[in-house]
Amino acid sequence: MMKYILFVFALIFAIGANAQGVMQHTPKGALYQIYTQNTGEKIKDGDIITFQYIQKTDKDSVLYSTYASGHVGQARIQPSQNVADLMEIFPLLAVKDSVLVKVPTDSLFKGHDDKRPSFFPKGSNLNFIIKILKAQSMDAFMAEVKQAEITGANKYIADHKLNLQTTASGLKYVITQPSTKRKALKGDTLLVNYAGRGLDDKVFDSSIEVIAKGAGLQQPGRTYEPLRVVLGTDGIIAGWDEGLLLLNEGSKAIFVIPSNLAYGAQGQGADIKPFSTLVFDIELVKIKPVKHTAAPAAKTAAKKPVYKKKVTANKN
């Protein structure tokens, strides 16, 4: 924390020393000053950038800081849509550059002045102090993200001493309570109890009341009961659709589901970040089967009769 405070103090001191009379304008009206101009390649359209930033008012009140939150900013560079998206600024920078950006709040609240907070009076600015940490192509970014996900999942599996099987798609699972009852088939309606968690072991959802409340989940009005699932109807994530087909009624299992079989690059709400491997404790409580038509027997080619050539004696 002290390192963060000293960094902010040093950066604000630099702003005070350098910002007077040297700010430049972007076409959309933001003011900026680059403090450390590095000689590296400038950020390009399509790059994925990783950066630290602080948001402040004109009176130096900090509204948000990635240094304090522990979560860096990331963005894909594209043509600017408005003055606040900073897409006019990023292509002016190289990795390790720092910049002060002042975005006029009159532009932000144009036509919505009733929503202007008191700490942003007319004529004020929303200030950003930004430091670029990394710039990557989409391919390089995706490779890094996938490797980080694999590394995180492998660590979780090792730490929890899970002996898992892996399917061709990448789903990892172990059946913790076998059953000899019938197996689930596509089209069946299943009743499933579950608890879902991230690789940090934080529970984000559960159909079991004691687990949900023990994890501090706020789900007012929810009825805790097994989830009703119809297999093969696109109502569940792909990892569940595949994994439940491996289970018999009454069995329990652990699924470790990579993001490409879960919520992918979009994530889901605040608890499931993009590219998150998810862990589920699963109990297949009951199967309500539908009538499954038997697959038609394979047709076999009709045997051709074997004809023997009739030999007749030559009477001559």
Rank of each mutant, 00 (worst) to 15 (best):
L199G: 12
K309E: 15
K42D: 03
A143I: 01
F51H: 06
E242P: 13
Q147L: 08
L162Y: 13
G111W: 07
P178I: 06
R228L: 13
N127C: 14
A195R: 10
E249R: 06
F128H: 12
I150E: 12
K291Y: 11
G70N: 04
E209I: 12
Y32H: 09
F255I: 01
V210P: 00
K115S: 12
T176Y: 11
K172T: 03
A253S: 09
K303G: 13
P220L: 01
V311Y: 10
I254E: 05
S80Q: 14
A75I: 04
K96C: 02
F120T: 03
A140M: 06
K3S: 15
L31S: 01
E225V: 15
D281T: 07
A14R: 08
E283H: 11
Y64G: 08
P274E: 04
G196I: 02
L261S: 02
P289V: 04
P289E: 14
S259K: 02
L185P: 00
P258Q: 09
F255Q: 02
M138S: 12
L185C: 10
L227S: 10
V101Q: 03
L93W: 00
G239A: 02
Q24M: 12
G152A: 15
N193C: 01
I77Q: 03
S61V: 13
A295R: 12
M1K: 12
T277L: 11
H71A: 04
Q24S: 12
